[in-house]
Write a protein that binds this DNA or RNA. Structure first.
Lengths: 369, 369
DNA sequence: ACATCTTACGTGATCGTTCACGATAGATTC
DNA sequence: GAATCTATCGTGAACGATCACGTAAGATGT
């Protein structure tokens, strides 16, 4: 642990420092022997300034460490080059990954970010957050809205700037446009993988239908089954928690309803399932194949390592900021959704000939609770 | 999925909307029949304004939906009521939890947040980020600095505003003061729990010594052992990953060096260890007791459910913003660190009489790589 | 009735920029 | 050599607030 400040400026942690006033555009102008207007021109790479003076001004700027005040610029231009990000307060895997990626991408494109988290009940918190963001003068807003209720609040809110919602499979409105990764495709890929392995009895242990992710992953599962000419059978809706999944797994075992294969709506769900099965001598993947969704950290070290679907948050962030910036700057951009990828590990194996699909349950297509 | 905008303002998603200009302080003044100075006074609850006009102004403000421009206020007061948060780009459990909690707490105290993520090499990215935050005009900065290299970069940087670093066990400098949860205590509690269970051969599968967390958790383990009159034996330093822990666990099994009990530096580390043991018939907790650190989501559904140490991120965020705001507003605040809590589940059990501690290895206190 | 003090409000300057114009100089044209 | 053009630069106003003063009217004291 080295000591401290080798650099010049005196830090201000302890108490009010005498630290010299920050230089402004007039200081630069004076030192360069020009007017502030000219400095402003070089700052904005505007024409009408000779190469010589431009060079001189630039040099002074570097010398005295001048930095343009974003506040003043924002005030006069009424553009802040900042975007607002709204997200749920729970630090869930998907939203957080998206958030971090979003900040990085936005910064690379010259935008700073203002993050505000919201919580239920959304109708009040979302409008308040949107207003705060508006106060901050953001040029546009990206809402990470995994929850349907949260999205609804956004739809009903009023904002003066462009709003983009990252919500899988949600529809756009005149006020709010939507972008997302193609999670339905991810779910299809997961299910298709199980089909390819020879399974015919593929259940879905779903997430919450209060979440777009839950809805759309279920839809993907159904679609893949349909494409394969298979009937959807067992489908249980939960709340994403390992706890619920564990209890569900226990019930499945007790009622002898463990299917050949399961597409779990998330890795956490898969985790609970696996534990319930392991405790009861049901082997994965020998007795039941499982594929998850998310590829959370550690999922490659589950017992067994989990076959799952990975989303590319960086790509998602890239595309969605591009889309928002396009709306802000009035240009058309491509909006094709990101495709997730299937990560094959060992929790899903080939169908066993000696273990026929159970036939006593599952009213076609219906999802139990 | 309801339709759209029930509220007044016309959203701006599609293209440039005609949306009426935002009202400013002069609009309010005119409508209330007073001068902008008076409006400013009611805005700031300043004296020298009669109850009647105050009421009238307030009503107008509400009626026309006036909201004060934070930009203009920031410009003239040179205070933004915003704080900057610097964090590592990797969405790790601790930092992310802290980040989310920080935003919420700051907002509740009337501050908005500007988040910037940094990545290695830190010496350049940190100074750049600090400068950006300065440009944004933040009143203070909180750095979530789990990595020693990141903290070093902060120490060497220069900033004009108060900087607080959340870094477990790091020391304060004149420029940068430090605050953190008491992770050493957490590690002591974890180790002490193992001692209480009757174990005498307690190893530490550590995190990375490039992280404060790694350093301080190891220190806590050593201290607890010392207090119990036990000699520190096996200690392996890793990189937090389940992968490394898994391989380490495998090695331990192969070399017959599996200790009675292990304090794992993180839940992810514990996860890798458990898998290696499970694959080789070493039972947890019967053959080896394990306690982790973090209480990540799902750790209660590991096989077996993990005994671990939980940190209260909300409390941490509360205290640390309080400390920063104290520095900004020049008042003294209490700085006693937050205490973590031990969550007892089933991965740590009583020592077995029939399994004596191995004695053939571990050069006292030394940590192997 | 005069001076003085309060209370309530208006006014001007200011923060650090951008932007539209106006002004100056030298170069070019006839 | 006068007129016009172009390149370069300076100036004033504006953005939306805050804050220190200035000032008018009514309350108070003698």
């Amino acid at each position: 642990m080295t000591e401290a400040a080798t650099r010049s400026g005196s830090g201000a942690a302890a108490s009010a420092p005498p630290s010299r006033r920050k230089p402004n555009i007039n200081d630069v102008a004076r030192m360069a022997g020009v007017s502030y207007g000219t400095v402003s021109r070089v700052l904005n790479d505007a024409p009408d300034v000779s190469a010589a003076t431009r060079e001189r001004v630039l040099q002074i700027i570097k010398d005295i460490g001048y930095r343009r005040s974003r506040t003043a610029t924002a005030l006069v231009t009424s553009r802040s080059t900042a975007i607002g990000i709204l997200t749920d307060e729970s630090p869930r895997f998907g939203p957080v990954g998206t958030l971090m990626a979003l900040e990085k991408v936005a910064r690379q494109k010259g935008y700073s970010t203002n993050v505000i988290t919201v919580e239920a009940p959304y109708d009040v918190s979302v409008q308040k957050a949107l207003d705060s963001l508006d106060d901050l003068g953001v040029d546009g807003i990206i809402v990470i809205a995994p929850l349907v209720a949260m999205a609804a609040a956004v739809w009903n809110a009023s904002v003066r700037v462009p709003v983009e919602m990252i919500a899988a499979g949600a529809s756009s409105t005149p006020n709010v446009f939507t972008y997302s990764e193609n999670q339905e495709l991810g779910a299809r890929m997961a299910t298709q993988h199980l089909v390819d392995l020879g399974h015919t009895d593929i259940a879905h242990v779903a997430g919450s239908m209060d979440w777009f992710d839950g809805r759309v992953r279920k839809r993907g599962w159904e679609a893949a089954l349909r494409d394969a000419g298979l009937a959807p059978r067992l489908c249980l809706e939960g709340d994403w928690s390992p706890k619920w999944a564990y209890e569900t797994g226990l019930r499945l075992v007790k009622e002898h309803k463990v299917p050949q294969a399961i597409f779990a709506a998330s890795d956490h769900t898969a985790l609970g399932l696996i534990r319930a099965f392991a405790e009861n001598g049901v082997r994965v993947p020998e007795d039941v194949s499982i594929v998850g969704f998310d590829d959370i950290e550690g999922s490659d070290y589950f017992l067994p390592p989990l076959t799952t679907v990975r989303q590319d948050f960086t790509a998602l962030a890239n595309m969605s900021t591009e889309v928002l910036l396009g709306a802000i700057e009035h240009r058309e951009v491509d909006r094709t959704p990101i495709e997730p990828i299937l990560v094959k590990r060992s929790s899903a194996g080939p169908a066993q000939a000696n273990r026929p699909p159970h036939g006593e349950l599952g009213e076609n297509g219906a999802c139990d609770r």
